[in-house]
Structure formats: C-alpha cells, structure tokens
Design a protein around this nucleic acid. Structure first.
Lengths: 182, 182
DNA sequence: TCGCACATGTAACGCGTTACATGATTAC
DNA sequence: GTAATCATGTAACGCGTTACATGTGCGA
C-alpha cells in the first residue's frame, strides 16, 4: 500500500488557517470531498503526530479535561514540509468503481437491471453537480481575494466537468439499454 | 472498510469464459483496468476460496507439482451468485486523487510547480485516451457478436468521455496558470 | 429533558499492496 | 545460456474505516 498522505492533507488544511480537528473534517467535507477525505481514525492521530514532530502546534487549553477544543496552526517547519511535498510529482492512484464493474458484467443479467443502476448513478451525479455549482457560487462570493481562489475554482471546475461528461454518458447508455429491452 | 468485491470480479471474469488465474489478471489489465483491478495477493486466494465454496471448479492437472496452469470455470451455483450480486445496488466509492489535492493546496507554491503537475497529468490522460481508442477498435473487430459487446463498449466509452473532459479541463487550467506566472 | 451538533480520541478488523518464493517454458 | 514471460502462491505490513467511548453546550 502507498504511503499515507493524511499528514499532508492535514498540513494543507492548516495552511489555509488555524483550525480544530473538527473544523478540518468539516472543511474537507465542504471542499475536497470529491477527491479527498479523511476519517476520524486517521485525522486525530495525524494531528497528534504532526504536533510531536513540530510541524503544527496546538493553542489548546490543556487544562484538566483535554476534551476541549484544540486550535492548531502550522509552523514554519510545517510550511516547509508541505511545500516540499507539493513539489513532488503525485502518485497515480488506482480507482475502483463497483458500478462500472457491474455494468461491465451486465450481460449476465437483464438490461432492466443495468438500466436501474445507471439511473441511480445518474441521479447521484445530478445531486453532486448541483452541490458543486452551489459551492462554486459561494467561493466566488466569499473567497474572491484569497490567494487560494484560482486553485479552489480549478478543483471545483474539475468536478463540474467530470460530472457533466458522465451525465452525457449516462444519457447515451440509457438510450442503448432502453432499446435492448425489446 | 467495505466488504471485498474481489470474489465477484473473479466470478464475472470466469463468466466470460474459462480461464487461468494468470489470464484473469491479464484480461483485467486489458479491460477493466480503468475502473477495477486486483493484485496477486487478492486474486489467488480468491480463486482458492471460490473453489472451496463450489462457485468455480478447476480443471487443473493436480499431478505432483501444483505449479501448473489451472483452468477455472464458473459453476451454475457461481452464476447464480454472480447474478445476485449484479442485481444489488452498487456502493458509492470514495475516490482519492493526490494530484487534485496538491492542486487544491497550490497557493502554497509557485504557479510553475502546479503547471508542471498539470502537464504531467495531461500527458498521462493522452496516453490513456489513445489506449482506450485502440481497445475500442479491437473490441469492435473481435467481439461484435458477443452478448458482452454493448456493455464492453459502454465501459470503454465511459473512460473515453472522462478522459476527454479532463483533457479539456487541463487545457483551461494550463491557460490560467500560464497567466499567473507573470 | 431530550436529542442533536460539537468535539476528541482509541481499538479492532479487514482490506489490498508489495515483496518474496518457486519453477517451467520460450525467445534471442 | 540467459533473460523474459508464463504461472501460482504466501506472508508481512501498513492503511483506512467502523464502531465505540466520552463528554459539553444548546435549542425545542
């Protein structure tokens, strides 16, 4: 298995602005969810790890309970580490789509079954596209002057273009499957 | 982690025609690689497992060495199991793209760095697209009369449309990054 | 006062890749 | 003869999700 990139995902989020772990999770869901996400079981240990290595520091009130909100911020050392990673070429990842695999084996069941799957897939794409367009508007409103602005728009545009292409593909596939029914 | 679908991927391949483990690997690389693949460490144990469950049988010469080619074929029970899985709704998968994550954090490095990454990405897409077009031609030549034909074309078309959309996106992003350089 | 969102963390478990082990056959 | 390809399998290891544990604050 490839080396975990969780540390860099966290580092990058904290390079945007100081945040708590919970806020990182929320921001990821809002921004990178379409191409990157982390679960709790990855996120919190990563924060502890990065702190131990001095790449981030927590301004948390470590009094008694520890069950309190901890605000983290990236250090100069962390910025350097992040930049170093950003300069390296990205590894190609292996994608896995159960939906596509099922369609590939589609001849083993009636066309109706596959048609149903494609329609569900299409519906999900529609929602995803609507969400992306919404987020794009929000970013254009709120982050116009941020240095991150062009990059955030690019990543949103990527999702939009992908979704639109896939929707067109769905429509073409649905037509073919409709014809196969009779 | 989601339940492994390796057994179904293998079952589906053997529903096309009887094959050895090695041939399954090769066929996957040629056909489903863009949306599904299995490593040796998954494939061979799965074959043993499916055999034990009577979903496939091996017509292998189990004489002495066992280091001989084993031809597997799917059983009626296996066909039933495959069809059952095909009828179930596919789980949505979490995609992860290190490249996209790096671009999202692009503001932390010079535009030139990101430009370089996009160009590498674009180059890979070009190769992928060329390969898909080649495979499409081959399938149209060799599998015209197979019941799998429409489904195989659909899955190839999906890859083609995706690649083309991403290439357009790359060109647009490259233009933006070029402008940011000065 | 009940439930939900906020908030942090750990443990268990299965998944999937990589590397290793072994050996036959074919092409140069 | 020697390198590549065919061919099957196992073991180790790290990765990532899920479920669990724990507690606070707030609004209906």
């Amino acid at each position: 298995m490839a080396k975990s990139k969780t540390r860099y995902a966290v580092l990058g989020m904290l390079a945007i602005e100081p945040m708590s772990g919970y806020q990182i999770r929320q921001l990821m869901q809002m921004s990178t969810a379409n191409f990157w996400s982390e679960s709790d079981g990855q996120l919190y240990p990563a924060l502890a790890d990065l702190t131990k290595q001095g790449l981030i520091v927590s301004k948390g009130m470590q009094k008694k309970d520890a069950r309190e909100k901890k605000m983290y911020r990236i250090t100069a050392k962390g910025q350097t580490e992040l930049a170093k990673w950003l300069k390296q070429e990205a590894e190609t990842q292996t994608v896995r789509s159960e939906f596509m695999l099922k369609l590939f084996f589609g001849a083993n069941v009636e066309p109706e079954v596959n048609l149903e799957h494609v329609q569900v897939f299409r519906h999900r794409l529609k929602s995803k596209l609507a969400r992306l367009l919404e987020i794009k508007k929000q970013v254009e409103r709120e982050d116009k002057d941020s240095p991150h602005f062009p990059y955030w728009i690019m990543s949103i545009e990527h999702g939009i273009k992908q979704s639109m292409a896939q929707l067109e593909w769905c429509d073409s596939v649905i037509r073919t499957l409709e014809k196969m029914k009779h």
